[in-house]
Amino acid sequence: MASESPQQGGIRLKVRVNGEHHESVVDPRMNLADYLREELRLTATHVGCEHGVCGICNVLVDGQAVRSCLMLAVQVDGKEVRTVEGLAEGGKLHPIQEAFIEEHGLQCGFCTGGFMMALCELFDRNPSPSEAEIKEVVGGQICRCTGYNAILRSAQNAAAKMSASRS
């Protein structure tokens, strides 16, 4: 728990990740991406540039997409984190994941989780986003192998699936 007086050593942290409660003691300098990958062994959150540019390490914190390389683990104390592992439910892929498969929205797949988490926030905020809104989100992410057209199609397909399942 973050305290009112300076602490080095370990800081106690309580957080829910994909619905599961975790308690850990972390070094203040540990970032959220490393915490998820190395402490919780949730390795679907990939780490790219480590300075916020590529967007590959996006996760949701209390529903908001963030770069997990630009947040300290101690800063998610008391919060709810969602990672790529938390997209599928009961063995069934999330519509965003299905859409990326159907539209070939990935080649090597290294960056894909970051796109999916950024889109997940968009769809939560706005169930039927315009093409411009989708492009704004996709434009904040870097993919070095597909070109972005297949990713845009995946995003549009996902939006269509999600609005169909709502109606």
């Binding site: 973050a2 305290s3 009112e4």
Partner: peptide, 17 residues
Amino acid sequence: MKPAPFEYVAPSTISGV
């Protein structure tokens, strides 16, 4: 690409800061 060690504190008031 990892920060050097630092101490950390998160006060809840401006006077605390």
